[in-house]
């Protein structure tokens, strides 16, 4: 089963995030470009575009199952997350399956995550 829904404090509004450039920003102020630039300078990590293709009830109570197609290869990846878990959507910002719960638990303003949204994810860079 997925790990129980602890409260990752890095999603709490006001949490200080260090970019790979060394710059510090609050989590609610992050923009798409911050992730893109961080991946560029971090070495070994790359940003993938992960498109939400389905959102289902999880077999685990209190979780939702998100289905993505990831990266250029359009690989299918599914993950179970609590509905309040925020994802960063290109051009939109933080989004979750339950913006109300995200606001309640993290005070982080969120859009509703929907099928078709393109989220930022990371993977290991292919070192040839």
């Amino acid at each position: 089963p997925p790990s129980s829904s602890h409260l990752p404090s890095h999603f709490m509004k006001g949490a200080i995030i260090q970019l790979a450039t060394g710059e510090l920003k609050r989590v609610e102020d992050l923009q798409t470009q911050d992730f893109v630039r961080s991946a560029e300078v971090s070495g070994g990590l790359k940003i993938d575009s992960s498109t939400v293709v389905d959102i289902q009830e999880s077999q685990w109570p209190g979780f939702v199952m998100l289905h993505f197609v990831v990266g250029e290869q359009q690989s299918k990846v599914s993950i179970d997350v609590p509905p309040e878990h925020p994802f960063f959507v290109y051009g939109q910002g933080w989004s979750s399956c339950s913006p109300a719960r995200t606001a309640q638990l993290f005070s982080l303003p969120c859009h509703r995550l929907q099928v078709g949204d393109v989220c930022i994810s990371i993977s290991l860079q292919n070192m040839n």
């Binding site: 949490a15 995030i17 790979a20 989220c119 990371i122 993977s123």
Partner: peptide, 25 residues
């Protein structure tokens, strides 16, 4: 006066999921 207090700093990559596609052939 503002008393100094320790503030946690989180790395940017802790905020985004690591979605590793299965290895292509």
């Amino acid at each position: 006066n503002v008393e100094p207090r320790s503030v946690a700093v989180f790395p940017w990559h802790s905020l985004v999921p690591f979605l590793a596609p299965s290895q292509p052939d």
